[in-house]
C-alpha cells in the first residue's frame, strides 16, 4: 500500500471516527456519573435532524449546530427526568429515546420539508467544510511528512478538531477538577457524595446535560459536516458503535480515542476495500461492519481484559432507610 493511499485511509478513518468519538465521550460523562445511556444514537439522530433543518432554513451551519445541541439536550432532560428524578429504568428510557428520535425526525421532517423525511440539500456555506491548516499547501510536496500533514492532519472541518480537543479536555475535567472528582464519585458511590453535602441529583443532571451537548455536536457533524443535509436514520447505529467503543475503552478518555479511531478505521477500510481477500479467503464486507460489535462482545466476555463499569451505574439513587 503506498503512502498516499494509506494517508487517505487514515484521513477518512479520522472523519468517520469523529462522530463516534463525540458520542463516546458523551456516554463517558453520563455513565461515569452512574447513568447508563443507550440512547446516544437517538440523541445523535435528533441533533442531526435539527442541525440539518436549521442550517437549511437559516443558511448558517453554526445556528444548525446550536439547534442540534438544543434538540439533543432536550432528550437528555427527558432521560434525566426518567432516570434521576423519577428513578425509572435507565435502559428502558434509552430505548424510548431512540424510538422517539427515530419517529419524530421522520415525522417532522416529512411535515416540514416534504422530501421523504430528508432536509433540503445544504449549500456549501451552510455546512462545516474542511479547513486548510497553515503550510498544508507548501508542505505537501515534502516526502512522508508532507502528505501526512496535508491529508491526515489538515483539511478536516472544525468539528473534527473540536472532537479531538475534547479528549484531553475530558481527561482534564474528570481527573483534575473538583467537578470531575464529584462526577466520578457519584457514579461509584452516590451515598458518599450525598453525605458529603453534595447534591446527587444536580451532579447527575450536569453529567447528563454534558452528554446531550456532545451528542448534539456529534449529530450536527453528521448532517452539516460529513454530509450535506439530513437523511432518515442517518446515524445508522453509530450511537451503538460509540457505546461499544466506550466499553472497549473501559470508560477512559484516551482509550476512547483509540477505540473510536479503530472503529472508524474498520469502517473506512471496509468502504475502500469491499470484499478484500486475505490468504485466499474473501472477507465479506458485512464482516467488517460487524467487527466493532464482535470485538465489543469479546471484551465484554472478559476474554481480553475485563471491562468493569462504574459501580453505581444503572441504579437510581434512593436514600436508604
Amino acid at each position: 500500500m503506498d503512502i498516499d493511499v494509506f494517508v487517505q485511509l487514515m484521513g477518512s478513518s479520522l472523519r468517520l471516527a469523529t462522530p463516534l468519538l463525540l458520542a463516546c465521550l458523551a456516554g463517558l460523562f453520563s455513565e461515569r456519573a452512574g447513568i447508563f445511556d443507550i440512547g446516544l444514537d437517538g440523541k445523535m439522530l435528533a441533533a442531526a435532524f435539527a442541525a440539518g433543518a436549521v442550517a437549511a432554513v437559516s443558511g448558517s451551519a453554526w445556528l444548525g449546530l446550536l439547534a442540534g445541541i438544543g434538540a439533543s439536550m432536550a432528550l437528555s432532560v427527558v432521560h434525566g427526568l426518567a432516570s434521576i428524578t423519577l428513578r425509572g429504568n435507565q435502559l428502558i428510557s434509552g430505548v424510548a429515546i431512540n424510538f422517539l428520535a427515530s419517529g419524530m425526525t421522520a415525522l417532522i421532517g416529512q411535515n416540514w420539508f416534504h422530501q421523504g423525511g430528508q432536509t433540503p440539500q445544504l449549500t456549501a456555506d451552510s455546512r462545516f467544510l474542511g479547513i486548510q491548516l497553515p503550510f498544508a499547501e507548501g508542505l505537501s510536496s515534502v516526502p512522508i511528512v508532507g502528505p501526512i500533514y496535508s491529508n491526515f492532519i489538515s483539511g478536516h472541518n472544525i468539528l473534527v478538531y473540536i472532537a479531538l480537543l475534547t479528549v484531553p479536555l475530558t481527561w482534564w475535567i474528570l481527573f483534575r477538577t473538583r467537578f470531575g472528582l464529584r462526577l466520578r464519585a457519584v457514579g461509584e458511590n452516590p451515598g458518599a457524595v450525598d453525605t458529603a453535602g453534595i447534591s446527587v441529583v444536580v451532579q447527575r443532571y450536569q453529567a447528563v446535560l454534558i452528554c446531550g451537548l456532545l451528542c448534539g455536536i456529534s449529530g450536527a457533524y453528521l448532517s452539516t459536516g460529513m454530509s450535506a443535509g439530513f437523511v432518515r436514520e442517518m446515524t445508522a447505529g453509530k450511537g451503538f458503535i460509540a457505546l461499544a467503543a466506550l466499553i472497549f475503552a473501559k470508560w477512559k478518555p484516551w482509550p476512547a480515542l483509540g477505540a473510536c479511531f479503530l472503529f472508524g478505521f474498520l469502517e473506512a477500510f471496509g468502504i475502500r476495500y469491499q470484499g478484500f481477500t486475505i490468504a485466499g479467503v474473501t472477507v465479506p464486507v458485512q464482516f467488517m461492519q460487524a467487527l466493532p460489535y464482535i470485538l465489543t462482545v469479546v471484551i465484554l466476555a472478559g476474554f481480553v481484559g475485563k471491562a468493569i463499569p462504574p459501580k453505581a451505574g444503572g441504579q437510581p439513587y434512593v436514600k436508604e432507610r
Partner: peptide
C-alpha cells in the same frame, strides 16, 4: 460512605474542596 476506587486523599476532600481545581 467511601468511594472505593478513590485514594484516601480524594475521599477526604470530596465535598470539601477549596476551589474548582484539585
Amino acid at each position: 460512605m467511601l468511594v472505593q476506587p478513590f485514594t484516601v486523599l480524594e475521599n477526604i476532600i470530596l465535598g470539601a474542596e477549596d476551589g474548582p481545581l484539585l
